[in-house]
Design a protein around this nucleic acid. Sequence first.
DNA 1: CACACTTA
DNA 2: TAAGTGTGG
Length: 350
Amino acid sequence: MGVNLKDLIPEEAKMVIEDLRMLRGRIVVIDGYNALYQFLTAIRQPDGTPLMDSQGRITSHLSGLFYRTINILENGIKPAYVFDGKPPEIKAREIEKRRKIREDASKKYEEALRRGDVEAARRYAMMSAKLTDEMVHDAKKLLDAMGIPWIQAVAEGEAQAAYIVGKGDAWASASQDYDSLLFGSPRLIRNLTISGRRKLPRKNVYIEIKPEIIELKKLLEKLGITREQLIYVALLIGTDYNPDGVKGIGPKKALQLVKAYKTLDKILKAIPKTEFPVEPEKIVEYFLNPPVTTDYKLEWKEPDESKIREILVEEHDFNPERVKNAVERLVKAYREHIRSKQMGLEAWFS
DNA sequence: CACACTTA
DNA sequence: TAAGTGTGG
């Protein structure tokens, strides 16, 4: 589930976005896997059943991707999605851990359904949700039809996003996870792909969720550490490459330790008999120099209405009226915020 | 999560 | 205009 830096981010390093239009004209690289997974888990009936077409194929991820992307475009934000490639070898333990969680949740889901506990069923359905290759494939196809660029990462999407933002080809990365900060993304937007109101788990209370920007430079300044040291902190708390972290060390102690001992060598000496599934040096190296591709281009194109209709209405039984309305909004947003601004003089005279 | 519609 | 409800696929 990524690195949990939540309790370490000082208020001063965060900037709450009151209105998405504040990001007008900015290019944002969205972690596609993270976004799709969120839609897949969130867009469900009360008992946990996802949206499905007449052939029983799940469509929750497509619904979320479609409408949310249009929303983002209407606010003048230029989205690009990045998708994970082959997970690195050092992630094996985390992947196995997730598989186990899904498996257990799947059993509990069936049980909950049997005893008629709708709320529990929903929770376990969310936990057992798996994003398949087919779902990702469908999502890419839909993005193509919408004219939205997507990038295939070599390995970690968050690493690729960080690279693109670092190079200045985009303004920020967007994900619920903090990993892109460790990979060096200068700016991370959280809560971009979730709506304004969200139900607190297990409570019948709704809270306002607003997008927020975390600036890496400010974060490091406020914490008084370097990016390398932030990676050490993550290592102590737990990352995808050592999911259990170090026993007995939470965010607070981790930061203390890193500030006290400063170098990885000394930090490791301060926590003797700690075992790591992967050598810590190797994990640090991966965050500092992950495999990325330089072969990408960010280009927005005119949406192709008939292709969109083909995918959503014909293949997946979306309501034609709803899709038509949404495409109208999409085309309008494209013309207002994207085409006009990326047209050079050349296009004007042709 | 988001749309479409209702309610006040 | 804001918030509540039912439903989407």
